[in-house]
C-alpha cells in the first residue's frame, strides 16, 4: 500500500518534481519572493533618496556648475578638488568643524557622565532629571538656535548678557566677536545635546549589576578605585557609542549655527557643512559646493572608521 502511494505521480508538486529535488530550496525561493516584495519599496526609496543623489553629487563635483553663470558650465575633471586644496577658507572651515566637533563631544561626554554618576547616587529626584533632560533633546535645533540668539545672547537684552553685566564683565557682543561667537555656538550645541549623553549613560549605569560593587566594597576598593576599575571599563562601550553618535551629528550640524550666526562673523563659525551650503545655495557654485560636500563625506567616513576601530579594539 505504502509503496504504491509513494509511486503515485505528484499531483500537487507543482513547484518541483518529486524525485531528487531539494524542496527546502523551493521553500527558500518562496520566502525570498515574499521578502523581496516587502523590502522593495523601502530600498527603492532609499536608493532614490541616498544612493542616486550621492552618485549625482560626485558627478556634479567634477563639473563647473554655476547657477549664476550657467553658460560657463562644463566638465572640469578634478579642478574643483584642486581648487579646494588651495582654498584657505576650506581649511579654515575644516579646522572650525574639528574644533566644534571635538569640544562639543568632549564637553557632552564629560558633563553627561559626571551628571549621570551624580544622579545615580541620588535617592530622590532622579525622575525629575529624566523628564527635564528630555526637553532640550526633542527640540528643533533651529528653534533652539533662535531662542539662544535672541532671548539668551542678544546684547543688552538676552539673559546671559544681563548676568554678564551684573557680574561686572560688561555687555559682550556674544555673536559678533569671532572667538565669543565660536564659544557661543559650542555652548549652545553642548546645552542641547548633553542631556542625550546623560540619558544614555544613566541608562547604562542603571543596568550595571549591584553585586559587582558590593564585591568591590568587600574587597576594600575606594570610591575612586571603584569608578576607575569597575564603572569606567563597564561603561566603555556606552561611552564609545555616545562619542560615535555625537561626532557624526556634530560634523554635520547645521540648523543651530545657521540660525545663530549664519557662519559669521565673517567665517568665524563656518563649519565645513555650512561652507558647502553657502557655496552651493548662497554663492550658487553648485559644482564647487558639491566638491566640498564630498570632502565632508570623506572626513566623516575617515573619522567614523577611526572611531569604529577604537570601538572594536579590546
Amino acid at each position: 500500500m505504502a509503496k504504491s502511494l509513494a509511486a503515485e505521480p505528484a499531483g500537487l508538486g507543482r513547484v518541483m518534481s518529486p524525485s531528487g529535488t531539494d524542496y527546502s530550496r523551493a521553500l527558500a525561493v518562496r520566502e525570498r519572493r515574499f521578502a523581496t516584495a516587502l523590502l522593495a519599496p523601502a530600498f527603492l526609496a532609499l536608493m532614490a533618496t541616498t544612493t542616486f543623489p550621492l552618485l549625482y553629487l560626485i558627478w556634479t563635483s567634477v563639473h563647473r556648475m554655476d547657477l549664476a553663470m550657467p553658460f560657463a558650465d562644463g566638465f572640469v575633471g578634478f579642478d574643483n578638488y584642486r581648487e579646494l586644496l588651495q582654498d584657505s577658507r576650506f581649511w579654515a572651515s575644516l579646522a572650525v568643524s574639528l574644533i566644534y566637533t571635538g569640544t562639543t563631544v568632549v564637553l557632552q561626554v564629560v558633563i553627561g557622565l559626571a551628571l549621570a554618576l551624580l544622579v545615580m547616587g541620588m535617592k530622590r529626584g532622579q525622575g525629575l532629571f529624566r523628564i527635564i533632560a528630555i526637553l532640550p533633546v526633542v527640540l528643533s535645533p533651529a528653534v533652539v538656535g533662535m531662542v539662544w540668539r535672541t532671548f539668551m545672547l542678544a546684547p543688552e537684552f538676552g539673559i546671559v548678557d544681563y548676568f554678564a553685566i551684573m557680574a561686572g564683565l560688561g555687555s559682550q557682543n556674544w555673536l559678533g566677536d569671532p572667538t565669543l561667537a565660536l564659544v557661543s555656538v559650542v555652548v549652545i550645541h553642548t546645552w542641547q545635546w548633553t542631556p542625550f549623553a546623560f540619558m544614555v549613560l544613566l541608562a547604562s549605569l542603571a543596568a550595571l549589576p549591584d553585586d559587582i560593587y558590593e564585591a568591590a566594597r568587600i574587597d576594600r576598593a575606594s570610591a575612586w578605585q571603584r569608578f576607575k576599575r569597575i564603572t569606567l571599563p563597564l561603561l566603555r562601550p556606552a561611552i564609545v557609542m555616545v562619542i560615535i553618535m555625537r561626532t557624526m551629528v556634530a560634523l554635520t550640524a547645521f540648523a543651530a549655527i545657521f540660525t545663530v550666526t549664519g557662519g559669521g562673523p565673517g567665517t568665524a563659525t563656518e563649519i565645513l557643512n555650512l561652507y558647502a551650503y553657502r557655496k552651493s545655495f548662497t554663492e550658487l557654485s553648485i559644482g564647487y559646493g558639491s566638491a566640498l560636500a564630498v570632502a565632508l563625506l570623506i572626513v566623516t567616513v575617515l573619522i567614523s572608521a577611526v572611531l569604529f576601530a577604537v570601538r572594536r579594539a579590546r
Binding site: L5, A6, E8, P9, A10, G11, L12, G13, R14, V15, M16, P18, G20, T21, D22, Y23, S24, A26, L27, R30
Partner: peptide, 20 residues
C-alpha cells in the same frame, strides 16, 4: 514548516512534499 532536501511526504495518498 520545513521542507526536506529529498524524499516524499504523502498524506492521504497525495504527495504534499512541496505544499505550504
Amino acid at each position: 514548516l520545513d521542507m526536506p532536501t529529498s524524499g516524499t511526504v504523502v498524506i492521504d495518498g497525495k504527495d504534499v512534499t512541496a505544499l505550504d
